[in-house]
């Protein structure tokens, strides 16, 4: 069974044809529980997210700030396994028909086996993977299997990426390019980095693949600002924070749905 890279491409193209940016939400699997995490992904899609990245919780999330670290800790203490990540992808996709990606550090896939991971992700209906600590030079084996199973390989670019490097990355990436708005770890910020627009411009000079901006975006006004120059807006910590701060799970889900609805207005320039 082939993965849903084409669904991802079509979804991003549809947003573009509507003259707006896509909204991409990030939520970790297994947080606060496996079923609670699945409900959260559905709530984000129900609220207006076009795409969801399901996080594979890791013991050593070196690129994540305190909010996602806390969620990962809760998920791991709850015993989350890769099978639960696959289940989250499958149930969210089956319920909504929308593209679901996995975002993970490289070691879990390395240990699990690249062929086994890509085959299972495609079978679950996944659209691809974002691998923030797998540089393009080390990615050949992954790409071979991802291509075979119809999965997108989304690479991250950073404000520090030089133009030649951007070209190397976008030449082999697929789905979209994840442009980090600033130099730093995940977390909400008061303002989106001024470097983001420049990075999007430099990245677009190398590729026709959509360029989506993440890191630091937490509200509709920021989403609208980013939507002014990017093909997609990626929001993670703000969703997780809504769930962490909620008095109970139901309120957390409502918070996710409400934030997605708010951000969906933002990406349509209605903030």
């Amino acid at each position: 069974m082939s993965g849903n890279v084409q669904l991802l491409n079509d979804t991003l193209a549809a947003a573009k044809s509507e003259g707006r940016a896509a909204l991409i939400a990030y939520l970790p699997a297994g947080f606060p529980t496996v079923t609670g995490g699945i409900e959260a992904v559905k709530a984000a899609l129900d609220g207006g997210a076009d795409v969801v990245e399901v996080g594979l919780p890791h013991s050593d999330p070196v690129l994540d700030g305190p909010v996602i670290q806390t969620a990962d800790d809760i998920a791991l203490r709850g015993g989350v396994r890769i099978a639960d990540v696959m289940r989250t992808v499958r149930e969210a996709h089956e319920a909504t028909g929308k593209p679901i990606l996995v975002m993970t550090y490289w070691n879990p896939i390395d240990r699990y086996g690249v062929e086994r991971f890509t085959a299972e992700l495609a079978e679950a209906g996944g659209a691809g993977c974002i691998l923030p600590d797998l540089p393009v030079q080390e990615s050949a084996l992954w790409r071979e299997h991802a291509d075979k199973h119809g999965l997108a390989t989304v690479f991250v670019v950073a404000p520090s990426s030089r133009d030649a490097r951007l070209a190397e990355i976008t030449a082999v990436g697929s789905g979209f390019v994840y442009a980090a708005s600033l130099m730093g770890v995940t977390g909400t910020r008061a303002s989106v980095g001024a470097q983001a627009e420049d990075l999007v411009r430099r990245t677009r000079a190398t590729t026709d693949t959509p360029v989506c901006v993440g890191l630091g975006v937490s509200n509709a006004a920021q989403a609208a600002e980013v939507a002014g120059f990017a093909d997609g807006v990626i929001v993670g910590s703000a969703f997780v924070k809504r769930m962490l701060d909620a008095p109970d799970d139901a309120a957390g889900l409502e918070g996710v749905r409400a934030l997605a609805a708010d951000l969906a207005k933002g990406v349509r320039g209605q903030a």
């Binding site: 070196v62 690129l63 490289w106 923030p132 600590d133 797998l134 540089p135 030079q137 080390e138 690479f155 991250v156 670019v157 950073a158 404000p159 520090s160 990426s161 030089r162 490097r165 990355i169 980090a180 130099m183 730093g184």
Partner: peptide, 20 residues
């Protein structure tokens, strides 16, 4: 040149650190 001692080593880092 890629930093490998046999099968071990390499450079598994986020893009933000590649230039540094």
């Amino acid at each position: 040149a890629e930093g490998y001692f046999g099968a071990f080593g390499g450079k598994f880092i986020p893009e933000a650190l590649v230039a540094a």
